[in-house]
């Protein structure tokens, strides 16, 4: 819990975003989210070229007993998806903040990042869910 990467931004719905500094961002789900879901068995990703809206459903992560929608933290166009996840969804379980990334976006408005949570604020969200 304490080792949330501080360089990332977070959404309440448990996605993380990394600003790549070139107008694009990388998106995944948090360590906490993968723990809640358990062993992932399938990941459904958007298509490259899809245009996403901030807060819109854009992907699905499935475990044996649950399926969760993933919401795009920012608006933008999908430039790349993590094709490795098709055969190895467990990568998200193993490395949610690294190799388990899901897709990259060319952000429509990079300032939308400011509306997201920093690591401390997201830690509080996790805390409040405990109760």
């Amino acid at each position: 819990m304490s080792n949330l990467p501080t360089e990332l931004k977070y959404a309440k719905s448990h996605e993380w975003v990394r600003n790549e500094g070139d107008g694009t961002v990388t998106v995944g789900i948090t360590e906490h989210a993968q723990e809640l879901l358990g062993d992932l068995v399938f990941v459904e990703l958007p298509d490259v070229g899809d245009s996403l809206e901030a807060g819109g459903e854009c992907a699905v992560v499935e475990s044996v007993k649950a399926a969760s929608d993933v919401y795009s933290p920012l608006s933008g166009e999908v430039t790349e998806v993590n094709v490795e996840l098709a055969d190895a969804p467990e990568t998200i379980n193993q490395d949610a903040f690294g190799d388990g990334w899901m897709f990259k976006l060319k952000a429509t408005n990079i300032s939308e990042l400011d509306k997201l949570l920093d690591a401390d604020a997201y830690a509080e969200v996790m805390q409040s869910e405990e109760h």
Binding site: V41, E62, V64, K65, A66, A67
Partner: peptide, 9 residues
């Protein structure tokens, strides 16, 4: 593949 089904989804 139960995650497709109504009792979960």
């Amino acid at each position: 593949l139960q995650a497709r089904e109504q009792h979960i989804r």
